[in-house]
Amino acid sequence: MSATQTYNKLVPEPTSDSAGYWQGLNEHKLLLQKCAGCGTIRHYPRPMCPSCHSMDSTWVEASGRGVVHSWTITHHAFHPGVRDDLPYTLATIDLAEGVRMNAQLRGVAPEMLRIGLPVRVKFETVKEGLTLPYLVADAGA
């Protein structure tokens, strides 16, 4: 979809915890929170480190590479905004940094899907000020 069309999907509401993540996507960077207390990386953005309970964190740029942990294929439009995408594959992946994320996986036929499939993150600006990540198979892995 080009950025000039009307975007009719649900949009995020960045909070003080997640604003850095969304801003990073706008710069085509996948940023992860890193605990300033113990160095543990966590995702999705949240106020506190689940390991040491420090509330101080920094942002680190992820490699954008990972492997499929699981997936679902959606055939029903649970929201009108996704009707034109059907069917789409939503994947949960294990990033190389040791955390999981969800995103649409594109360009991989259902019969090619498998746990452990190498993928990488790409970026798509869907409307002004909003860039979202999606996944493709990582042919180089």
Binding site: D17, M48, M55
Partner: peptide, 14 residues
């Protein structure tokens, strides 16, 4: 602190 809603609760609970 004006941070996100969970933040002060998490801090107080810890």
């Amino acid at each position: 602190s004006g941070r996100s809603v969970p933040s002060p609760q998490l801090g107080a609970l810890v």
